Simulated assay, not measured.
Amino acid sequence: MSTNTPASAPPPVPPSPLREVIRSQDWYGQDISDRRYSHHAFIDVDMTEVTNEGAVFDHCTFRGVRFNVSRHSGAAFTNCTFSHCVFFDTRFADCKLVGSLFQQCTFSLFEVSGGDWSFVGLPGADLRKASLRSVRMREADLTGARLEGADVTDVDLSGAQLHSANFIRCDLRGSDLASLDPLTVELGRATVSLEQAAVLVTALGLHVA
């Protein structure tokens, strides 16, 4: 596993206004489906192998939380902050994470399919070999993110911040690359479609005769 090291400092924990702090609890293997939390802080909570279908977390803070082997489907984590959390073999399917921020988190065997991750902040995130499929990530911040060998197919990256991102050996087929400046990212051995190649050539100011 690898840990990202964004330059920005971790956000204050917990957020304000705060309703409750849930600290050092063991939620191992629990089914948290359909629970609702707003303005809560989760600190050093073990959510390993948690099952989550439809739970809602709004304006919550997660610090030092372990999401290992957890499964989240149709859930919402809106405007949340994840700091120093661990995502090992974690899967999100058709979830909504609009406006959420990840800082100094660890990702391994990380999978996201479907859902809305628009305006998500993942600056400097180490997402090597992650799977991000059919996700809406409009205006997401992927500045300096590492996506070597990742599967980033059919992803809506319109308006995304991609400066200094690493897409080496990344599968980008079907994704919106209109916001990608090939001069400011690494694309060596990335896989793209012919249509996407035309977009990249145009971004380089070249004309195909």
Results as ranks from 00 to 15, higher is better:
Asn68His: 04
Ser73Cys: 13
His72Ser: 06
Phe92Pro: 03
Leu122Thr: 02
Ile43Val: 14
Ser16Arg: 13
His84Gln: 06
Asp126Glu: 15
Ala178Arg: 14
Phe119Glu: 12
Pro10Ile: 10
Lys129Met: 12
Ile22His: 07
Gly188Tyr: 14
Leu18Asp: 06
Gly121Arg: 12
Leu122Pro: 01
Asp26Glu: 10
Leu206Thr: 02
Phe67Val: 00
Ala150Phe: 08
Leu101Arg: 14
Ser164Val: 05
Ser193Ala: 13
Pro11His: 02
Met1Asn: 01
Arg91Asn: 07
Phe102Ala: 00
Leu147Gly: 06
Glu111Gln: 09
Trp27Gly: 00
Thr5Trp: 13
Val208Ala: 10
Leu194Gln: 07
Arg91Phe: 05
Ser164Glu: 14
Arg71Val: 01
Thr202Gln: 15
Leu187Asn: 06
Arg138Met: 12
Cys60Ala: 14
His163Asn: 11
Ala125His: 03
Gly54Ile: 01
His40Ile: 00
Val112Arg: 13
Ser158Glu: 13
Thr81Val: 10
Ala41Pro: 11
Ala197Asn: 11
Gly149Ser: 07
Trp27Leu: 04
Gln25His: 00
Gly74Gln: 09
Ser2Ala: 07
Ala190Asn: 08
Thr61Arg: 09
Ala190Thr: 14
Gly159Ser: 10
Pro17Trp: 14
Gly99Ile: 13
Ala75Arg: 01
Ser113Asn: 14
Ser164Gly: 03
Asp31Asn: 15
Leu157Phe: 11
Asp31Met: 08
Val98Cys: 08
Ser2Asp: 10
Glu186Met: 11
Asn4Trp: 13
Arg23Tyr: 10
Ala190Ile: 07
Thr153Ile: 06
Phe110Gly: 00
Thr51Arg: 09
Gly188Phe: 05
Ser16Asn: 05
Thr106Pro: 02
Thr3Trp: 15
Leu194Ala: 12
Arg189Trp: 11
Glu195Ser: 12
Asp89Leu: 08
Gly159Cys: 13
Arg133Met: 13
Leu18Met: 07
Ala190Arg: 04
Ile32Thr: 06
Glu195Cys: 05
Leu187Pro: 06
Ser193Trp: 04
Cys105Tyr: 03
Leu162Cys: 03
Leu122Ala: 02
Asp31His: 10
